[in-house]
Nucleic acid binder design. Structure first.
Length: 460
RNA sequence: GCUCCAGUGGUGUAGUCCGGCCAAUCAUGCGGGCCUUUCGAGCCCGCGACUCGGGUUCAAAUCCCGGCUGGAGCACCA
Protein backbone atom coordinates (compact mmCIF):
# COMPACT_ATOMS: atom_id res chain seq x y z
CA UNK A 1 0.00 0.00 0.00
CA UNK A 2 1.10 3.59 -0.12
CA UNK A 3 0.62 7.00 1.35
CA UNK A 4 1.04 9.63 -1.34
CA UNK A 5 0.96 13.23 -0.19
CA UNK A 6 1.94 16.31 -2.12
CA UNK A 7 4.93 17.91 -0.41
CA UNK A 8 3.41 21.35 -0.11
CA UNK A 9 3.44 21.51 3.66
CA UNK A 10 3.45 19.39 6.78
CA UNK A 11 0.77 16.78 7.37
CA UNK A 12 -2.60 17.74 8.79
CA UNK A 13 -5.54 15.81 10.17
CA UNK A 14 -6.84 15.00 6.71
CA UNK A 15 -3.54 13.39 5.76
CA UNK A 16 -3.46 11.59 9.06
CA UNK A 17 -6.50 9.61 8.12
CA UNK A 18 -4.98 8.45 4.82
CA UNK A 19 -1.66 7.67 6.47
CA UNK A 20 -3.15 5.84 9.43
CA UNK A 21 -5.61 3.80 7.40
CA UNK A 22 -2.98 2.66 4.93
CA UNK A 23 -0.59 1.88 7.76
CA UNK A 24 -3.22 0.04 9.74
CA UNK A 25 -4.29 -2.21 6.91
CA UNK A 26 -0.82 -2.86 5.58
CA UNK A 27 0.25 -3.98 9.05
CA UNK A 28 -2.88 -6.02 9.51
CA UNK A 29 -2.17 -8.02 6.38
CA UNK A 30 1.61 -8.01 6.67
CA UNK A 31 1.95 -5.79 3.67
CA UNK A 32 4.39 -3.02 2.91
CA UNK A 33 3.81 0.70 3.02
CA UNK A 34 5.47 3.10 0.65
CA UNK A 35 5.66 6.83 1.16
CA UNK A 36 5.35 8.35 -2.27
CA UNK A 37 5.95 12.06 -2.47
CA UNK A 38 3.92 13.40 -5.36
CA UNK A 39 5.85 16.45 -6.39
CA UNK A 40 5.04 16.66 -10.07
CA UNK A 41 3.65 20.15 -9.80
CA UNK A 42 6.68 22.39 -9.29
CA UNK A 43 4.43 25.26 -8.31
CA UNK A 44 3.08 23.46 -5.30
CA UNK A 45 6.24 22.07 -3.82
CA UNK A 46 7.58 23.39 -0.56
CA UNK A 47 11.17 22.14 -0.19
CA UNK A 48 10.97 21.79 3.59
CA UNK A 49 7.88 19.63 3.30
CA UNK A 50 9.76 16.49 2.30
CA UNK A 51 11.36 16.25 5.70
CA UNK A 52 8.37 17.57 7.59
CA UNK A 53 6.21 14.80 6.19
CA UNK A 54 8.69 12.15 7.24
CA UNK A 55 8.89 13.62 10.73
CA UNK A 56 5.13 13.77 11.02
CA UNK A 57 4.76 10.14 9.96
CA UNK A 58 7.38 9.03 12.40
CA UNK A 59 5.62 10.93 15.15
CA UNK A 60 2.36 9.23 14.23
CA UNK A 61 4.07 5.90 14.64
CA UNK A 62 3.77 4.94 11.00
CA UNK A 63 6.43 2.68 9.63
CA UNK A 64 7.46 3.39 6.09
CA UNK A 65 9.16 0.58 4.20
CA UNK A 66 10.30 2.69 1.31
CA UNK A 67 10.28 6.30 0.17
CA UNK A 68 9.70 7.17 -3.46
CA UNK A 69 9.92 10.67 -4.83
CA UNK A 70 8.15 11.16 -8.11
CA UNK A 71 10.51 13.83 -9.37
CA UNK A 72 13.22 11.13 -9.31
CA UNK A 73 11.18 9.05 -11.68
CA UNK A 74 10.65 11.44 -14.56
CA UNK A 75 12.47 9.22 -17.03
CA UNK A 76 10.18 6.36 -16.16
CA UNK A 77 7.13 8.49 -16.83
CA UNK A 78 8.59 9.61 -20.13
CA UNK A 79 9.32 6.02 -21.07
CA UNK A 80 5.76 4.87 -20.42
CA UNK A 81 4.31 8.01 -21.91
CA UNK A 82 6.24 7.35 -25.09
CA UNK A 83 5.00 3.76 -25.14
CA UNK A 84 1.45 4.95 -24.98
CA UNK A 85 2.05 7.24 -27.93
CA UNK A 86 3.71 4.43 -29.85
CA UNK A 87 0.77 2.19 -29.18
CA UNK A 88 -1.50 4.91 -30.52
CA UNK A 89 -3.29 5.37 -27.21
CA UNK A 90 -2.04 8.87 -26.59
CA UNK A 91 -1.44 11.94 -28.67
CA UNK A 92 0.11 15.36 -28.43
CA UNK A 93 -2.54 18.03 -28.42
CA UNK A 94 -1.76 21.62 -29.27
CA UNK A 95 -5.28 22.97 -29.16
CA UNK A 96 -5.84 25.89 -26.92
CA UNK A 97 -7.59 24.89 -23.72
CA UNK A 98 -10.83 26.79 -24.35
CA UNK A 99 -11.18 25.35 -27.80
CA UNK A 100 -10.57 21.83 -26.58
CA UNK A 101 -13.01 22.25 -23.75
CA UNK A 102 -15.68 23.30 -26.15
CA UNK A 103 -15.07 20.35 -28.47
CA UNK A 104 -14.99 18.02 -25.54
CA UNK A 105 -18.25 19.32 -24.21
CA UNK A 106 -19.83 18.31 -27.50
CA UNK A 107 -18.08 14.98 -27.71
CA UNK A 108 -16.03 15.98 -30.73
CA UNK A 109 -12.42 14.91 -31.18
CA UNK A 110 -9.86 17.58 -32.00
CA UNK A 111 -7.62 17.39 -35.09
CA UNK A 112 -4.59 16.42 -33.05
CA UNK A 113 -6.19 13.10 -32.18
CA UNK A 114 -5.51 11.51 -35.57
CA UNK A 115 -2.12 12.92 -36.48
CA UNK A 116 -0.49 9.52 -36.59
CA UNK A 117 2.14 7.94 -34.39
CA UNK A 118 5.17 9.29 -36.28
CA UNK A 119 4.06 12.88 -36.10
CA UNK A 120 3.12 12.48 -32.42
CA UNK A 121 6.54 11.13 -31.53
CA UNK A 122 8.12 14.08 -33.27
CA UNK A 123 6.01 16.51 -31.31
CA UNK A 124 6.67 14.59 -28.09
CA UNK A 125 10.42 15.04 -28.56
CA UNK A 126 9.90 18.72 -29.19
CA UNK A 127 7.87 18.98 -26.02
CA UNK A 128 10.62 17.37 -24.01
CA UNK A 129 13.20 19.68 -25.56
CA UNK A 130 11.23 22.68 -24.48
CA UNK A 131 10.45 23.79 -27.99
CA UNK A 132 6.72 23.84 -27.50
CA UNK A 133 4.30 25.86 -25.40
CA UNK A 134 0.68 25.25 -24.48
CA UNK A 135 0.84 21.61 -25.37
CA UNK A 136 -0.36 18.53 -23.56
CA UNK A 137 -0.36 14.82 -24.14
CA UNK A 138 -3.81 13.34 -24.02
CA UNK A 139 -4.93 9.80 -23.48
CA UNK A 140 -7.41 8.44 -25.99
CA UNK A 141 -10.40 7.38 -23.96
CA UNK A 142 -13.93 7.69 -25.18
CA UNK A 143 -14.62 11.05 -26.72
CA UNK A 144 -18.30 10.54 -26.00
CA UNK A 145 -17.89 9.34 -22.43
CA UNK A 146 -20.80 10.47 -20.30
CA UNK A 147 -18.43 12.24 -17.95
CA UNK A 148 -16.81 14.99 -20.03
CA UNK A 149 -13.75 15.16 -17.81
CA UNK A 150 -12.88 11.61 -18.77
CA UNK A 151 -12.96 12.34 -22.51
CA UNK A 152 -9.32 12.32 -23.63
CA UNK A 153 -7.97 13.63 -20.37
CA UNK A 154 -4.40 15.01 -20.31
CA UNK A 155 -1.51 12.96 -18.96
CA UNK A 156 1.46 15.28 -19.51
CA UNK A 157 1.74 19.02 -19.48
CA UNK A 158 4.40 21.66 -19.95
CA UNK A 159 5.48 23.54 -16.85
CA UNK A 160 8.54 25.75 -17.02
CA UNK A 161 8.56 26.83 -13.40
CA UNK A 162 11.81 25.43 -11.96
CA UNK A 163 11.30 22.47 -9.67
CA UNK A 164 12.86 22.81 -6.20
CA UNK A 165 14.62 19.49 -6.59
CA UNK A 166 15.38 19.12 -10.27
CA UNK A 167 15.41 22.81 -11.11
CA UNK A 168 15.03 23.29 -14.87
CA UNK A 169 16.05 19.80 -15.89
CA UNK A 170 12.49 18.98 -16.98
CA UNK A 171 9.77 21.08 -18.49
CA UNK A 172 7.24 18.31 -19.13
CA UNK A 173 5.52 16.85 -16.09
CA UNK A 174 3.10 13.94 -15.82
CA UNK A 175 -0.35 14.65 -14.41
CA UNK A 176 -1.41 12.55 -11.48
CA UNK A 177 -3.80 10.50 -13.54
CA UNK A 178 -0.77 9.18 -15.37
CA UNK A 179 1.94 9.03 -12.72
CA UNK A 180 -0.33 7.38 -10.19
CA UNK A 181 -1.31 4.29 -12.19
CA UNK A 182 2.24 3.90 -13.54
CA UNK A 183 3.70 4.04 -10.06
CA UNK A 184 0.98 2.01 -8.45
CA UNK A 185 1.73 -0.76 -10.91
CA UNK A 186 5.51 -0.51 -11.00
CA UNK A 187 5.72 -0.23 -7.23
CA UNK A 188 3.51 -3.27 -6.81
CA UNK A 189 0.47 -1.86 -5.08
CA UNK A 190 -2.24 -4.34 -4.29
CA UNK A 191 -4.59 -2.04 -2.41
CA UNK A 192 -5.03 1.70 -2.32
CA UNK A 193 -7.10 3.57 0.23
CA UNK A 194 -7.88 7.12 -0.79
CA UNK A 195 -10.61 9.69 -0.42
CA UNK A 196 -13.72 9.52 -2.54
CA UNK A 197 -12.67 12.69 -4.28
CA UNK A 198 -10.58 10.29 -6.36
CA UNK A 199 -13.44 8.14 -7.59
CA UNK A 200 -13.45 9.77 -11.00
CA UNK A 201 -9.66 9.58 -11.12
CA UNK A 202 -9.85 5.87 -10.55
CA UNK A 203 -12.06 5.60 -13.58
CA UNK A 204 -9.57 7.61 -15.61
CA UNK A 205 -6.61 5.64 -14.36
CA UNK A 206 -8.26 2.41 -15.35
CA UNK A 207 -7.63 3.29 -18.99
CA UNK A 208 -3.89 3.31 -18.34
CA UNK A 209 -3.97 -0.06 -16.62
CA UNK A 210 -5.99 -1.48 -19.46
CA UNK A 211 -3.78 -0.11 -22.23
CA UNK A 212 -0.70 -1.63 -20.62
CA UNK A 213 -2.53 -4.81 -19.75
CA UNK A 214 -1.77 -4.36 -16.08
CA UNK A 215 -3.82 -5.73 -13.26
CA UNK A 216 -5.47 -2.91 -11.39
CA UNK A 217 -4.95 -2.71 -7.67
CA UNK A 218 -7.99 -2.61 -5.43
CA UNK A 219 -8.93 1.06 -5.09
CA UNK A 220 -11.06 1.78 -2.04
CA UNK A 221 -12.51 5.21 -1.43
CA UNK A 222 -13.47 6.54 1.94
CA UNK A 223 -15.78 9.48 2.61
CA UNK A 224 -14.88 13.03 3.39
CA UNK A 225 -13.79 13.83 6.91
CA UNK A 226 -15.33 17.12 7.90
CA UNK A 227 -13.21 18.84 10.47
CA UNK A 228 -14.61 21.87 12.22
CA UNK A 229 -12.39 24.45 13.77
CA UNK A 230 -8.80 24.56 12.63
CA UNK A 231 -7.44 25.76 9.31
CA UNK A 232 -6.53 22.83 7.07
CA UNK A 233 -5.82 24.30 3.67
CA UNK A 234 -2.09 24.13 3.14
CA UNK A 235 -2.06 27.21 0.97
CA UNK A 236 -4.04 29.23 3.51
CA UNK A 237 -1.78 28.10 6.32
CA UNK A 238 1.29 28.96 4.34
CA UNK A 239 -0.03 32.39 3.40
CA UNK A 240 -1.02 33.04 7.02
CA UNK A 241 2.43 32.16 8.23
CA UNK A 242 4.07 34.44 5.68
CA UNK A 243 1.77 37.28 6.71
CA UNK A 244 2.67 36.72 10.33
CA UNK A 245 -0.91 35.84 11.19
CA UNK A 246 0.16 32.44 12.48
CA UNK A 247 3.23 31.70 14.57
CA UNK A 248 4.27 28.86 12.32
CA UNK A 249 3.12 25.47 11.09
CA UNK A 250 2.42 24.52 14.69
CA UNK A 251 0.17 27.44 15.53
CA UNK A 252 -2.65 26.09 17.71
CA UNK A 253 -5.25 27.40 15.28
CA UNK A 254 -4.02 25.09 12.54
CA UNK A 255 -4.98 21.50 11.98
CA UNK A 256 -1.44 20.27 11.36
CA UNK A 257 -0.10 17.33 13.27
CA UNK A 258 2.66 19.51 14.65
CA UNK A 259 0.08 21.93 16.02
CA UNK A 260 -1.67 19.06 17.76
CA UNK A 261 1.65 17.80 19.04
CA UNK A 262 2.41 21.18 20.50
CA UNK A 263 -0.91 21.18 22.26
CA UNK A 264 -0.16 17.89 23.92
CA UNK A 265 -2.25 15.60 21.75
CA UNK A 266 -0.66 12.18 21.60
CA UNK A 267 -0.21 10.46 18.25
CA UNK A 268 -1.75 7.30 19.68
CA UNK A 269 -5.00 9.18 20.24
CA UNK A 270 -5.08 10.34 16.64
CA UNK A 271 -4.22 6.88 15.37
CA UNK A 272 -6.94 5.30 17.45
CA UNK A 273 -9.57 7.74 16.34
CA UNK A 274 -8.70 7.40 12.67
CA UNK A 275 -8.92 3.63 12.72
CA UNK A 276 -12.18 3.91 14.61
CA UNK A 277 -13.62 6.20 11.94
CA UNK A 278 -12.57 3.64 9.38
CA UNK A 279 -13.11 3.58 5.65
CA UNK A 280 -16.80 3.89 5.01
CA UNK A 281 -17.85 6.01 2.10
CA UNK A 282 -20.34 8.17 3.95
CA UNK A 283 -18.94 11.52 4.99
CA UNK A 284 -18.15 11.84 8.64
CA UNK A 285 -17.71 14.70 11.02
CA UNK A 286 -14.45 14.65 12.89
CA UNK A 287 -15.20 14.49 16.58
CA UNK A 288 -12.91 16.57 18.75
CA UNK A 289 -14.78 15.23 21.74
CA UNK A 290 -13.71 11.70 20.90
CA UNK A 291 -10.15 12.78 20.20
CA UNK A 292 -9.90 14.50 23.53
CA UNK A 293 -11.41 11.55 25.33
CA UNK A 294 -8.89 9.23 23.72
CA UNK A 295 -6.08 11.59 24.56
CA UNK A 296 -7.20 12.01 28.15
CA UNK A 297 -7.18 8.27 28.49
CA UNK A 298 -3.51 8.26 27.59
CA UNK A 299 -2.25 11.28 29.49
CA UNK A 300 -4.38 11.30 32.62
CA UNK A 301 -2.49 8.53 34.37
CA UNK A 302 0.84 10.29 34.00
CA UNK A 303 -0.04 13.95 34.22
CA UNK A 304 1.13 15.64 37.38
CA UNK A 305 -1.41 17.89 39.03
CA UNK A 306 -0.78 21.50 39.87
CA UNK A 307 -2.84 24.40 41.10
CA UNK A 308 -3.26 27.22 38.63
CA UNK A 309 -5.33 30.34 39.07
CA UNK A 310 -6.35 32.32 36.07
CA UNK A 311 -7.15 36.03 36.44
CA UNK A 312 -5.58 36.04 39.90
CA UNK A 313 -7.00 38.11 42.72
CA UNK A 314 -4.99 38.80 45.81
CA UNK A 315 -6.34 37.62 49.16
CA UNK A 316 -4.90 38.51 52.56
CA UNK A 317 -5.76 36.03 55.27
CA UNK A 318 -5.81 37.18 58.87
CA UNK A 319 -5.52 34.92 61.85
CA UNK A 320 -3.68 31.94 60.40
CA UNK A 321 -0.13 30.87 60.95
CA UNK A 322 2.46 30.03 58.37
CA UNK A 323 2.24 26.40 57.39
CA UNK A 324 3.64 23.98 54.87
CA UNK A 325 1.61 21.41 52.95
CA UNK A 326 2.80 18.41 51.04
CA UNK A 327 0.41 17.23 48.39
CA UNK A 328 0.57 14.37 45.98
CA UNK A 329 1.51 15.20 42.42
CA UNK A 330 -1.13 12.71 41.27
CA UNK A 331 -4.11 11.51 43.28
CA UNK A 332 -3.66 7.85 42.40
CA UNK A 333 0.07 7.61 42.05
CA UNK A 334 2.45 7.85 44.93
CA UNK A 335 5.45 7.30 42.70
CA UNK A 336 5.01 10.68 41.05
CA UNK A 337 6.08 12.34 44.29
CA UNK A 338 4.78 15.31 46.18
CA UNK A 339 4.68 19.04 45.83
CA UNK A 340 4.94 21.66 48.50
CA UNK A 341 2.59 24.55 49.13
CA UNK A 342 3.65 27.11 51.68
CA UNK A 343 0.91 29.19 53.19
CA UNK A 344 1.97 32.55 54.47
CA UNK A 345 -0.90 35.01 54.66
CA UNK A 346 -1.00 36.22 51.07
CA UNK A 347 -2.51 34.11 48.34
CA UNK A 348 -4.05 34.35 44.89
CA UNK A 349 -7.39 32.92 43.96
CA UNK A 350 -9.29 32.88 40.71
CA UNK A 351 -12.87 32.89 41.91
CA UNK A 352 -14.96 35.91 42.68
CA UNK A 353 -15.33 35.70 46.44
CA UNK A 354 -18.37 37.21 48.12
CA UNK A 355 -18.24 39.11 51.36
CA UNK A 356 -19.54 37.17 54.34
CA UNK A 357 -19.35 33.78 52.69
CA UNK A 358 -17.24 30.83 53.75
CA UNK A 359 -14.78 29.15 51.40
CA UNK A 360 -12.51 26.17 51.75
CA UNK A 361 -8.99 26.66 50.47
CA UNK A 362 -8.30 23.28 49.04
CA UNK A 363 -6.23 21.06 51.29
CA UNK A 364 -5.77 23.98 53.70
CA UNK A 365 -8.53 25.47 55.85
CA UNK A 366 -11.77 27.40 55.83
CA UNK A 367 -11.98 31.15 55.55
CA UNK A 368 -14.68 33.79 55.60
CA UNK A 369 -14.53 36.89 53.48
CA UNK A 370 -14.32 40.14 55.33
CA UNK A 371 -14.00 42.96 52.91
CA UNK A 372 -12.65 43.95 49.53
CA UNK A 373 -10.49 47.04 49.25
CA UNK A 374 -8.66 48.31 46.19
CA UNK A 375 -8.96 44.98 44.52
CA UNK A 376 -7.50 43.10 47.46
CA UNK A 377 -9.71 40.67 49.30
CA UNK A 378 -9.41 40.41 53.07
CA UNK A 379 -10.44 37.18 54.68
CA UNK A 380 -10.35 35.65 58.13
CA UNK A 381 -9.24 32.22 59.13
CA UNK A 382 -12.28 30.28 60.28
CA UNK A 383 -11.43 26.67 60.99
CA UNK A 384 -9.40 23.70 59.86
CA UNK A 385 -11.97 20.97 59.77
CA UNK A 386 -13.07 19.96 56.32
CA UNK A 387 -16.40 18.82 57.75
CA UNK A 388 -17.25 22.36 58.71
CA UNK A 389 -16.77 23.43 55.15
CA UNK A 390 -19.08 20.64 54.06
CA UNK A 391 -21.69 21.59 56.61
CA UNK A 392 -21.60 25.18 55.47
CA UNK A 393 -21.60 24.13 51.82
CA UNK A 394 -18.47 26.17 51.38
CA UNK A 395 -17.08 26.17 47.88
CA UNK A 396 -13.68 24.52 47.64
CA UNK A 397 -11.29 26.73 45.77
CA UNK A 398 -7.75 26.57 44.51
CA UNK A 399 -5.18 28.99 45.79
CA UNK A 400 -1.58 29.91 45.12
CA UNK A 401 0.84 31.42 47.66
CA UNK A 402 1.89 34.83 46.48
CA UNK A 403 5.51 34.13 47.38
CA UNK A 404 7.17 32.07 44.67
CA UNK A 405 4.03 31.99 42.51
CA UNK A 406 5.00 31.03 38.98
CA UNK A 407 3.71 33.42 36.38
CA UNK A 408 2.14 31.23 33.73
CA UNK A 409 0.62 31.82 30.35
CA UNK A 410 -1.64 29.27 28.75
CA UNK A 411 -2.26 29.59 25.01
CA UNK A 412 -5.54 28.04 24.01
CA UNK A 413 -6.75 26.62 20.72
CA UNK A 414 -7.74 30.05 19.46
CA UNK A 415 -4.27 31.35 20.30
CA UNK A 416 -5.85 33.34 23.11
CA UNK A 417 -3.62 33.83 26.13
CA UNK A 418 -4.73 33.01 29.65
CA UNK A 419 -2.51 34.63 32.25
CA UNK A 420 -2.31 33.44 35.81
CA UNK A 421 -0.17 31.94 38.51
CA UNK A 422 0.79 28.35 39.15
CA UNK A 423 2.15 27.00 42.41
CA UNK A 424 5.90 27.22 42.95
CA UNK A 425 6.66 23.56 42.29
CA UNK A 426 5.28 23.87 38.79
CA UNK A 427 8.81 25.07 38.01
CA UNK A 428 9.96 21.46 38.21
CA UNK A 429 7.72 20.49 35.30
CA UNK A 430 9.79 19.73 32.23
CA UNK A 431 9.46 21.20 28.81
CA UNK A 432 7.15 19.01 26.77
CA UNK A 433 5.57 17.52 29.87
CA UNK A 434 1.80 17.37 29.98
CA UNK A 435 0.33 18.36 33.31
CA UNK A 436 -3.14 18.95 34.59
CA UNK A 437 -4.00 22.31 36.02
CA UNK A 438 -6.72 21.10 38.30
CA UNK A 439 -10.17 22.12 37.15
CA UNK A 440 -8.63 24.12 34.32
CA UNK A 441 -7.52 21.37 31.98
CA UNK A 442 -4.53 19.56 30.56
CA UNK A 443 -1.72 21.67 29.21
CA UNK A 444 1.66 20.99 27.66
CA UNK A 445 4.66 22.90 28.96
CA UNK A 446 6.08 24.63 25.95
CA UNK A 447 8.67 27.09 27.14
CA UNK A 448 10.24 28.09 30.44
CA UNK A 449 11.48 31.63 30.70
CA UNK A 450 13.09 33.23 33.74
CA UNK A 451 9.96 35.04 34.76
CA UNK A 452 7.25 33.04 33.06
CA UNK A 453 6.23 29.58 31.90
CA UNK A 454 4.32 29.20 28.65
CA UNK A 455 1.91 26.32 28.14
CA UNK A 456 -0.41 25.19 25.38
CA UNK A 457 -3.90 24.09 26.24
CA UNK A 458 -4.81 20.56 25.22
CA UNK A 459 -8.34 19.99 26.51
CA UNK A 460 -10.37 19.73 29.68
C1' G B 1 -26.92 21.54 -14.73
C1' C B 2 -24.55 16.69 -15.75
C1' U B 3 -22.22 12.05 -13.71
C1' C B 4 -21.51 9.11 -9.50
C1' C B 5 -22.04 7.89 -4.34
C1' A B 6 -23.93 7.70 0.59
C1' G B 7 -27.79 8.02 4.59
C1' U B 8 -27.76 3.53 12.15
C1' G B 9 -28.63 7.67 18.95
C1' G B 10 -25.60 14.60 19.92
C1' U B 11 -20.71 12.42 17.75
C1' G B 12 -17.87 8.14 15.85
C1' U B 13 -18.76 2.99 15.08
C1' A B 14 -20.65 -2.66 14.68
C1' G B 15 -24.41 -5.10 11.92
C1' U B 16 -26.05 -4.23 5.46
C1' C B 17 -22.36 -8.26 0.82
C1' C B 18 -24.97 -14.02 2.25
C1' G B 19 -32.91 -11.14 5.18
C1' G B 20 -34.49 -14.18 10.79
C1' C B 21 -30.22 -15.16 16.66
C1' C B 22 -30.93 -6.86 15.95
C1' A B 23 -37.14 -4.28 20.42
C1' A B 24 -29.74 -3.13 17.19
C1' U B 25 -22.83 -3.32 19.35
C1' C B 26 -18.99 -0.58 21.50
C1' A B 27 -16.95 4.12 22.56
C1' U B 28 -17.77 9.15 23.39
C1' G B 29 -21.40 12.66 25.16
C1' C B 30 -25.37 13.85 28.37
C1' G B 31 -28.36 12.91 33.18
C1' G B 32 -28.24 10.62 38.04
C1' G B 33 -25.64 7.90 42.02
C1' C B 34 -21.16 6.08 44.82
C1' C B 35 -16.32 7.54 45.95
C1' U B 36 -13.14 11.64 46.14
C1' U B 37 -10.70 18.13 49.85
C1' U B 38 -10.25 18.71 41.14
C1' C B 39 -16.22 20.62 38.27
C1' G B 40 -10.49 15.10 37.10
C1' A B 41 -10.10 9.72 37.32
C1' G B 42 -12.68 5.22 38.70
C1' C B 43 -17.22 2.33 39.59
C1' C B 44 -22.75 1.80 39.04
C1' C B 45 -27.49 3.13 36.79
C1' G B 46 -29.96 5.66 33.01
C1' C B 47 -30.86 8.64 28.11
C1' G B 48 -30.57 8.27 23.08
C1' A B 49 -30.65 5.78 16.42
C1' C B 50 -31.96 1.98 11.73
C1' U B 51 -33.80 9.29 6.43
C1' C B 52 -39.09 8.90 4.59
C1' G B 53 -42.86 6.32 1.64
C1' G B 54 -44.10 2.09 -1.01
C1' G B 55 -42.93 -3.01 -2.61
C1' U B 56 -41.00 -8.29 -2.18
C1' U B 57 -41.21 -11.89 1.96
C1' C B 58 -43.77 -16.07 6.95
C1' A B 59 -39.78 -12.45 8.26
C1' A B 60 -36.24 -6.24 6.20
C1' A B 61 -31.55 -1.77 9.38
C1' U B 62 -30.35 -5.61 5.78
C1' C B 63 -33.29 -6.90 -0.94
C1' C B 64 -36.16 -3.65 -4.90
C1' C B 65 -38.47 1.18 -6.52
C1' G B 66 -39.38 6.32 -5.57
C1' G B 67 -38.87 10.82 -2.61
C1' C B 68 -35.94 13.67 0.72
C1' U B 69 -31.24 14.99 2.66
C1' G B 70 -26.06 15.10 2.42
C1' G B 71 -21.57 14.58 -0.36
C1' A B 72 -17.96 13.97 -4.37
C1' G B 73 -16.34 14.87 -9.34
C1' C B 74 -17.03 17.74 -13.82
C1' A B 75 -8.57 21.57 -14.13
C1' C B 76 -2.79 21.76 -18.74
C1' C B 77 -3.65 20.47 -9.04
C1' A B 78 -2.97 16.28 -6.11
Amino acid sequence: MRFAPNPSGPLHLGHARAAVLNDYFSKKYNGKLILRLEDTDPKRVLPEAYDMIKEDLEWLGIKIDNVVIQSDRMDTYYEYGRKLIEMGHAYVCQCNPEKFRELRANGIACQCRDLGVERNLELWEKMLNGELENTVVRLKTDIKHKNPSIRDFPIFRIEKTPHPRTEDKYCVYPLMNFSVPVDDHLLGMTHVLRGKDHIVNTEKQKYIFDYFGWKMPEYIHYGILKIEGPVLSTSKMHAGILEGKYRGWDDPRLGTLRALKRRGIKPEAIYKLMTEIGIKQADVKFSWENLYAANKDIIDKDARRFFFVENPKKVVIEGAKHRVLNLRAHPDREDLGTRELIFDRNIYVSDDLKIGKMYRLMELFNITIDKIENGTIYAKYHSDDFKIARQNKAKIIHWIPVIDAVKTKVIDTNAKEHIGFAEKDFRIANIDEIVQFERFGFVRVDEKKDDEVICYFAHK
